[in-house]
Design a protein around this nucleic acid. Structure first.
Length: 439
RNA sequence: CGGGGCGUAGCGCAGCCUGGUAGCGCAUCUGCUUUGGGAGCAGAGGGUCGCAGGUUCAAAUCCUGCCGCCCCGACCA
């Protein structure tokens, strides 16, 4: 993409409304624009990142055996009356009437819809297990939206729903999601810690929140150091095999967010040198809730014994739009955003320091063609602007590689290659620089 | 939802107390000079001062109501 034709409105100053660094940077880098409290338009750069995160989530869900569907944003109130949640949900639910005075709502989540879909097709234990997920916009009319897309009213969420014949099978479904989540966060360049979450009235140990580490995070996490170092299981595990040992490895060690933290237990379960306290952001939540919806909504399946039983369900959420902000919180510096390669809006930036100079123009065109052909998706800054402005804007938007082409370097037969994450620069011939980028 | 604050040019702000020609910086446009970390000079354009009433000869400024947005708290992907 040539920057002269692109739409990337960067700002030198952050709008006063933005409080946290990710919100400020998202506005300054031209990723989003606020349309109303907690409601944002996604500008080209922000949309690219959002789509990349979405794709990582999708690939890992598919790998773990989940099947993608797309459910509507508008849902019938009647379904929610069946589950009993229509009256319970309160003011956070945006309620709408259509022209026939029929009660609708903008979905804050989709348990009811997915249960309705499930029950109308699946009747036998032989068709289980199933895991259906969708990546869709949700709306929760928060009393107080804040922190940009971190806590917006409208947000993009991946929500998966598992269906099993019994609790033992549901646990296997849960384990798959548990490990798939760790792989998602690892691919996004994040350190994620699974912490036990409150299961409420359902009880049990099948509920975890995933907290990614970021110095500016809003909540506090307490964890055994080994858990943080352990990392993700990787994509090559046997998804149909016994995942319990892998999950236990990662749930045995102490980990808690501030609301579940028990300092005495922490000290008992982890030696002083192993205790880590950090700040983090919640970016995922998985839990098993059994028959909570299947029973009132009569999602029944026939078991091997010929008896109908409510299907056992679990749900698994990832805040996709929130992750855009979370990644920035975890990865930025004074100059701007530092995107991990996996979600960067462009693979490399080409900076033409002297547009109109025949040598610079030719070298940039060559680089642009080569990187495009190699699938790097370069952003070519071909604007007639000063070098300083180009450096600042490129740092701000966080593109991983910067290929700097100027008359001084070209006179010596070199260009400059800068790695955004480390700030490391090297002068080298154009061909060598292109090779370094395409790896 | 309780408490607080703010709405003046695309962005950041001053002016309001004490009513009288709407201003500054950045951004934008033109010209010249510049060109390796958000340039300099000269000039230009852009605002029904959130909306609606009221007071007054006169309202960005004072009064009333409404709307929007932000912050702190309680609640959440």
């Amino acid at each position: 993409m040539r920057l002269s034709r692109y739409f990337m409105p960067t700002l030198r100053e952050a709008p006063a409304d933005a409080q946290i660094v990710s919100h400020q940077l998202m506005l300054r880098a031209g990723l989003i624009r606020q349309e109303a409290a907690g409601i944002y338009a996604w500008l080209p750069l922000g949309l690219k990142v959002l789509k990349k995160i979405e794709q990582v989530v999708r690939e890992e869900m598919n790998r773990a055996g989940a099947v993608e569907i797309l459910m509507p944003t508008l849902q019938l109130a009647d379904l929610w009356r069946e589950s009993g949640r229509y009256d319970d949900y309160g003011e956070e639910m945006l309620r709408i009437k259509d022209r026939h005075e029929r009660d609708l709502l903008y979905g804050p989540t989709a348990e009811e819809v997915v249960t309705d879909i499930f029950r109308s097709y699946i009747k036998s234990y032989k068709d289980l297990p199933k895991n259906l997920y969708n990546i869709q916009w949700k709306f929760r009319d928060e009393r107080r939206p804040r922190f940009g897309v971190m806590r917006g009213r409208e947000f993009l969420m991946k929500d998966a729903y598992s269906f099993d014949i019994d609790e033992a099978s549901a646990r296997r479904s849960y384990n798959r999601m548990f490990l798939a989540y760790l792989n998602v966060y690892a691919r996004l360049g994040l350190k994620a810690i699974p912490v036990r979450a409150d299961t409420g009235p359902i009880g049990g140990d099948l509920s975890h929140e995933f907290i990614i580490l970021a110095e500016t995070g809003e909540s506090e996490v307490f964890a055994h150091r080994d858990l943080v170092e352990m990392g993700a299981p990787g994509p090559d595990i046997d998804w149909d095999g016994d995942l319990q040992p892998l999950v236990e490895q990662r749930t045995r060690l102490y980990a808690a967010s501030d609301e579940m933290h028990d300092q005495a237990r922490f000290e008992a379960e982890a030696a002083e040198g192993d205790r880590m306290t950090a700040r983090g952001i919640e970016v995922g939540h998985i839990f098993y809730f059994g028959e909570k919806y299947s029973k009132p909504m009569k999602a029944l399946v026939t078991g091997p014994d010929g008896k109908d039983v409510p299907v056992q369900m679990g749900s698994y959420g990832v805040g996709v739009s929130r992750l855009v902000a979370a990644i920035i919180e975890a990865s930025h510096d004074d100059a701007g955003i530092v995107w991990p390669d996996s979600v960067a809006p462009f693979g490399a930036a080409i900076l033409n320091l002297r547009v109109g100079d025949a040598g610079c123009d030719a070298a940039c065109e060559q680089a642009y063609k080569a990187l495009t052909a190699a699938g790097v998706d370069p952003l070519y800054d071909d604007r007639d602007d000063r070098p300083g402005a180009k450096f600042a804007a490129t740092d701000l938007v966080g593109i991983p590689w910067q290929l700097v082409v100027g008359p001084k370097g070209l006179a010596d037969g070199v260009v400059e290659l800068k790695r955004r994450a480390t700030g490391e620069r090297q002068s080298l011939p154009l061909d060598a620089a292109l090779k370094a980028i395409t790896g």
